[in-house]
Nucleic acid binder design. Sequence first.
DNA 1: CCGTGATCATTC
DNA 2: GAATGATCACGG
Length: 240
Amino acid sequence: MVASPPPLTESELLARARDLAGSTLAEVALGLNRSVPGDLVHAKGWVGQTLELALGATAGSRDQPDFEQLGVELKTVPVGTGGRPSESTFVCTIPLLDVARSEWRESRVHRKLARVLWVPIQADPERPIAERLVGEPLLWSPSPEQDAALKFDWDTLAGLIGSGQIERVTGHLGAVLQVRPKGRNAADRRWGLDEDGVRVLQLPRGFYLRARFTEGILREHYLLPGDTAEPTRLRGRSRR
DNA sequence: CCGTGATCATTC
DNA sequence: GAATGATCACGG
């Protein structure tokens, strides 16, 4: 068995994803003739790319939905103990030169998040990559409230960047959406605009969903622990 | 060369 | 510990 052909419908995609739920990453990789890295230091995208292959995603690195035919984006999300996301979720890079002229409804963020297949992946650091489990998938579109929250942050952040105030845009801004570096390293540069509209080289950045926002998405669909109070268990104690 | 797949690792 | 800023591999 090798990579799957693209699914023809959302139902088919969802069915495939459900079939993978409960498998270990080693089992998924074995079916694809893929080896499993011992750690992710030099393979940070390995989990996402493996699931893309297993589910028949087609877009590669192009600025298109992973499942082009369906307009669906695939996102694996690492979850720790308690099933809560342990990382933010990368959405897309920011087109520094023309973000000023774009609008929310036409933005990359809006397009990417219009339809997302979330696949939680068990990712306790202690657990070897091979033994991590694939979780139950969730096919999601933003609720009106979620869309409004995303738009609010996007308007703010894109507005700052578009007006050349990118230096003021740190990871601290945004309730649900944030901007963080997204490049080869801190020396990487892309063309952007300064406050006078002059082309200047800037650190490339991307939009990310805060883990708390993703947690809310998962919580709508799954019953996550933590809803019930777990008052002071282990509070104030250190390990070992 | 750039965007996508993300997680790492240093700083709060 | 959590969050921000930095980093790594790959495909087209």
